[in-house]
Nucleic acid binder design. Structure first.
Lengths: 366, 366
DNA sequence: CCAGGGAAAGAAAGCGCTTTCTACCCTCGG
DNA sequence: CCGAGGGTAGAAAGCGCTTTCTTTCCCTGG
């Protein structure tokens, strides 16, 4: 079956399809070197010559071959952005932020890892193949020594080859120093612990004492940090970290949040508040509560995390923690472009801020 | 000021940083040709030799240079995905769908055009530079003959160079035929007109007669099609296309939807329903209604379009039209990869389906 | 025992650029 | 009037691969 598109073979056989530098040079009556210099504007060229070259470029509709250029100059126009899934607004916002700062010159390659370690490594290899100019790694890391080691090694090699690296919303990688003369990797850390702590403090201040927590997958750093913040707030009040029965781990999605909430409710019917580890799960929490005939916040208060755009329009408006994701992505982009420098230790903390809406209220007196 | 990352100059001066094919060949005691053959598995190589080569690859941590390869073989691992903004779930879903089908071999370059014609053209040039294997254009097109012509020309050249092209949620480009032997471009068209018509029919069936419409920017095809569907439904009932005062054009975002609604309400206080041209605007519509103390759907019914994930959790659950965006993206991906063929005319219609939730109800009897 | 043939490997010519090094011309100052 | 030197342009050597064309070698059949 003949494919519906032109095969590359078709092209190779036939006459040249795109003009080359040499074609332009010939037409302009100059050498290839001169054309290259006009195009890159990195060497003096007489105005008249320049004009002739530019005209030839126009006439031949010449478009430079990026691969040849990258090969000869050992540079690259590619920036890799590793995310769990672009369709998730959390990552979409980061990716969009990166784009906003790199879009003019560079092409952003967005890679959906689905959070899988092997896909992550695989994409890093593909990016290394293309000799990417930079890579942004987002998405919470799996806390598995083996995988962390593998990623560290891959990044070390990328960095050695000149690829700039920014970790966005990930813990710093020990061994890949941040600052000093051999600085390689910048890290943007979200204030997950602080944000979670303040959020739970808010709940405690309202008077809640039996608070359920719907956490993310147990093996992720982000999960752990947010949970630690939650526990810290409880501990500060002298409350035990909460019996394990108040905490349910599950995937970072809505359906899982719903299921986890139903389980939590069965185990602890007396809950007056449930904190979810992110906004998406929080929607599932709300759905589950409604199914059980519980009103929000009258019967049970709910909180999320991230403050994704939809959270303000959810019902009720979700009390959550705002993370400036777009701005973080933009910062990552600027760092990659060299438009900005990270502090000596390479570590930037992205602040988190509690946003109070209508999903939290004091508990009803029993 | 010395940049925080290793400069590419640093690299060029110093000793070679990455192993090359020749290094591998030397170490394995074979010729470069043989290494290439092992790596590409496109020519018989004796098992023993193969083993030696693979070992050398391991030992040297060799990673092929994608640019050199692309240059020599005139192939490419890049797929371009043009979207207005990845942070918008509408486009995020499409991009994610494309990725799902291309991710293994290809790298998806996501380009945020913000809907601006010049950025669109600029990105097409950048992709042409990289000799991209394929391009997906999404995002509603500006209906400006000049721009359409410019895009058509750019695409024609891309196609001529072997780049496969899929238009996703855009009108077909006259002149870039879809099928037959010289097929170049496949088009995935969303059933915007039908979806909008059915949605308005739903409103009419409920008994609404004074229906406001918050449309997108007037110069977009998508805007026009959805509006046409709306009007067609009205016309079928013998209702005038609605006085212009029932229709407000604005940007496809929440804030604009809110403002437009306030204006509509001022002009026509008797509205019993408002249809928004997409879900995001619909959220703005809801916000505006609430500000005015109107209840949804008791006082005014509201509809959206697209059925983005958040629509089910909005308050009240949004009646809207579902567009299988992820699936459309995936189809685009399969088309690009040659895993699937478009019909002879190159045109695939992606069906739309009304989803009834809680934001629509019969109007109160006045 | 030798011609013939197939399998496996190598040599080498590019692919389309960048960049160093060299060549040239023209203008000055002595 | 001549040599120095600044300003332009060109020649050519790669960059790291792929692929065609040869060559080599060994096995088979007559």
């Amino acid at each position: 079956m003949r494919p519906w598109f032109a095969r590359s073979d078709d092209r190779r056989k036939g006459q040249r399809v795109a003009a080359t530098l040499a074609d332009v040079a010939r037409r302009a009556g100059v050498s290839a070197a001169t054309v290259s210099r006009v195009l890159n504007d990195n060497y003096p060229v007489a105005p008249a010559t320049r004009q002739r070259v530019l005209r030839a470029v126009q006439e031949l509709e010449y478009v430079i071959n990026g691969n040849a250029r990258a090969l000869a100059a050992s540079t690259s126009d590619l920036i890799g952005v590793l995310v769990n899934d672009v369709a998730d607004p959390f990552f979409g916002l980061i990716a969009s932020g990166v784009q906003s700062e790199t879009g003019g010159d560079k092409l952003a390659v967005v890679c959906n890892t689905t959070g899988a370690p092997d896909r992550e490594l695989n994409y890093l290899t593909l990016l290394q193949r293309q000799r990417a100019a930079g890579v942004v790694l987002s998405g919470s890391a799996i806390e598995e020594p083996e995988h962390i080691h593998a990623v560290t090694e891959r990044l070390r090699r990328l960095a050695a080859a000149g690829t700039r690296i920014v970790l966005c919303g990930r813990p710093p990688l020990p061994g890949l120093a941040g600052g000093g003369d051999d600085a390689k990797v910048a890290t943007l850390a979200f204030a997950n612990r602080d944000g979670a702590r303040e959020l739970t403090e808010h709940l405690l201040a309202l008077g809640h004492r039996r608070i359920g927590y719907v956490a993310g997958p147990a093996d992720r750093t982000t999960t752990r940090h947010r949970l630690e913040g939650h526990r810290a707030a409880l501990a500060a009040r002298g409350m035990g970290a909460g019996s394990g029965r108040l905490i349910a781990h599950c995937a970072y999605d809505r359906a899982s949040g719903r299921r986890a909430t139903l389980a939590l409710l069965d185990a602890e019917p007396g809950l007056t508040a449930i904190a979810a580890a992110n906004d998406t799960m929080a929607l599932g929490v709300c759905a589950a509560l409604r199914e059980r005939g519980l009103r929000i916040p009258d019967d049970v208060s709910v909180t999320g995390f991230d403050d994704l755009p939809f959270s303000a329009d959810a019902f009720p408006g979700l009390t959550t923690v705002r993370l400036p994701l777009y701005q973080a992505g933009a910062l990552a982009g600027r760092l990659l472009m060299g438009h900005e420098s990270p502090p000596p230790d390479g570590l930037v903390t992205i602040p988190a801020e509690v946003v109070r809406r209508d999903s939290t209220a004091p508990p009803r007196r029993p």
